[in-house]
Design a protein around this nucleic acid. Sequence first.
DNA 1: TGAGAGAGGGTGTGA
DNA 2: TCACACCCTCTCTCA
Lengths: 232, 232
Amino acid sequence: MKPKQSNAMKTGASDAPPQFVRRIAVDHRERPSEVPAALAAHPDVRITFDQLSLGDYRIDNTLIVERKTLTDFAQSVRDGRLFAQASRLIRVKRARPCLILEGTRINHWSAALPRTALQGALITVTLVFGLPVLRSASPEETANLILYAADQLHRRATRPPKRRGYHPKGLNRQQNFLLQTIPEIGPTRAQRLLNTFGTPFGVASATIDDLQMVDGIGKSAATKIHQVFHGP
Amino acid sequence: MKPKQSNAMKTGASDAPPQFVRRIAVDHRERPSEVPAALAAHPDVRITFDQLSLGDYRIDNTLIVERKTLTDFAQSVRDGRLFAQASRLIRVKRARPCLILEGTRINHWSAALPRTALQGALITVTLVFGLPVLRSASPEETANLILYAADQLHRRATRPPKRRGYHPKGLNRQQNFLLQTIPEIGPTRAQRLLNTFGTPFGVASATIDDLQMVDGIGKSAATKIHQVFHGP
DNA sequence: TGAGAGAGGGTGTGA
DNA sequence: TCACACCCTCTCTCA
Ligand SMILES: [Mg+2]
Ligand SMILES: [Mg+2]
C-alpha cells in the first residue's frame, strides 16, 4: 500500500535492523499480488522473480513460503490440490516450509468455505502433515511475516555458542516420569504406585491383582501396567 | 457441566459418526472453562478430570492439547513461560502435541499484545519449535477442534514425519518410550535394551553387568538404569 | 593385560 | 523440528 518509510513498519523484522541483505526469490505467479512490493519496501531486501518449482517465496535455503489467500485456499481444498502440495512442502530438506494463509472471511466472503471445513482442512495440514501455518490479514502483513520468520530462522543458524544447562532430576522424579509413560498413569497414580511398591522394579514385579490394590488403579490401568512391563 | 448444546454438532467431528467412545483426560485447572462442558455435549465423549503433568487435554496416545486464551497467551509471552512450555510440549513422545489459541482480539482486548508481538511469538512457536498451532474463536469451537483433530490423527495410519531415532510401533513403542525416560537412554539404546532383554521387566531385572553387555551401554548408563529401577 | 587417548555416536538442549 | 555441544562408549595402541 505505502512503500515508503521502512521505519514506519512496526514489525520486529524491521525493528531489529537486519545484519545483511535478504535475498528473496519470488515465484513469478506472485507478481500480480501486493506482497512483492511490500517486501521490496523493506530495507535490505532484494527480490528476484523466478520460476519456483515449489512454494511462492524462498529465502536462502532456510524458508519456503507457500502463500494462499483464503480464496486460493478454499479452491485448493475443493480440488484436493492442498494436501498434495502440503505433502510436497514438508518433504523439502534443508529449508523450513510454511503456509501463510492471507485474508479474513470479511474480504473473501465469496469463496469462503464453511468455517468448519476451513478448520478441518487446517487441522489436517497443521497436525497431520505437520506443516506450519501462519495467518495474515493483508499482503503487508504477509511480507512482514515472511521477513520476521526468515530472520528468526537465520538467527538460529548464525548463533554464538551457548551454555548448556544440566538438570540433575531427583531420583524419585525420574521414577515417577518412567511410570507416567504408561497409558492412564499420570503423576498421581505414578506416585501411589511408587509409595506402594517402592521402586519401578517393584511395580514391574507386581501382579495385576497386586496392582489393583492401589488406590485409583482399576482393572484397566492394572492390565496396562502389566502389559507394558511384560508384553502381551 | 451443562450438556444442553445439541446444536454443537456442526463440526466434522460429529458429522462423521465416531467409531467409538473418545476418552478425554482434562486437567483439573481447565474445570472453570467452558470447554469441558462443550466436549461433554458431544455424543461418545467421556471426559475425566485429572492432574496432567503437561497440556490441558489429552486423548490417549493421540493428542495433547495445550489451550490458551489470548489473555493467557499474552501473559505467557511476557513472562517467557511460553517458550519453555512449547519446548516441553514438542518433546512429548506419546502423542502429538498442539497449541490451541482461543479467543479474538475483540473479547480479549485488555490483554492483547501488539499484533506484531503476537505474530512474532506465533512464528517462533510454529516455525522454530515446530509446534502446531490452531486458532479457535470460542470454547465450543475449541471443543470441536479437539475432537476433530483427535479423529483425524486416529484415523491416519500416517504418523507425522520422522523424529530422530527408531520408530517402533504399538506396544514396543511404549516400552521404548518408558526406557527413554532414563538418563543417557535415547531411542537407540532403548531399542537395543529391548532387543536384548525382551521387555522393560527384563531390563529392570538385569544386573549392572548384564546391562553393560549391550552394545552402547557402558558403566555409566548401566548404573543409571539400575538406579532408576531399584533406587540407590 | 591394562591404561589412556581419540574417534564416533548418541543424547539432551536450546531455539 | 533442527542443529549441534557434550559426554559416553568402544577400539586401538603401547607399555
Ligand atoms: Mg500460492
Ligand atoms: Mg492452559
